[in-house]
């Protein structure tokens, strides 16, 4: 069968377009480009409540992503949730008295771990555990507390108003 150059070119263009769109999907649309599996080290922290934190949630310091959550397990002895994080090996000068908090990105956004600065001279290393943790803010809990508090205040003020009459 004779080769048809135009046909070859058209098929070539088609295949190239298809492969290019696959690459587009892989790199631009999904997180493959930020999924560089570089050197990491693991640190753990135990939270009273890790809220809606998920495996692969980002760990950030001062707003910059420095790692990911690699596992979340419940420790039935201490009744706390133990979160293991993989931190990029580039950041190996994090003080070992840093604190971690679970925050929410935006009102309805995903939850992430934020690393607060410490002042110690010794650094976090593979396997070290962070002592200072702040649990996730549970909205229902906060609202309940607020309502109870305002109800108490109201009761107090009512009592004060009523007491002179008695």
């Amino acid at each position: 069968m004779p080769h048809n150059n135009t046909q070859d070119t058209l098929v070539g263009l088609f295949v190239a377009a298809g492969i290019a769109s696959l690459f587009f999907l892989a790199l631009q649309v999904s997180n493959l480009s930020s999924f560089t599996k570089g050197e990491t080290y693991q640190i753990t922290a135990s939270f009273e409540n890790s809220g809606g934190l998920k495996v692969k949630s980002p760990v950030s310091a001062a707003g910059v992503k420095i790692g990911r959550v690699s596992s979340i397990v419940f420790n039935p002895k201490t009744y706390r949730s133990v979160v293991t994080m993989e931190i990029d090996a580039k950041y190996k000068t994090l003080p070992d008295d840093s604190s971690v908090s679970v925050y929410t990105a935006g009102l309805l956004g995903e939850q992430y771990i934020s690393l607060g600065e410490g002042a110690s001279d010794s650094y976090l290393h593979n396997g070290s555990e962070i002592e200072f943790t702040n649990s996730a803010l549970i909205l229902e809990k906060a609202i309940t507390q607020y309502l109870l508090k305002s109800a108490d205040e109201k009761k107090d003020s009512d009592d004060k108003k009523n007491s002179p009459k008695k």
């Binding site: 631009q28 649309v29 999924f35």
Partner: peptide
């Protein structure tokens, strides 16, 4: 683009679609 990038997973979304 950034929200898309952060929330779509290569393994789970793209590969399964393929």
């Amino acid at each position: 683009w950034s929200q898309m990038n952060a929330n779509l997973d290569f393994q789970k979304d793209i590969i399964n679609g393929i």
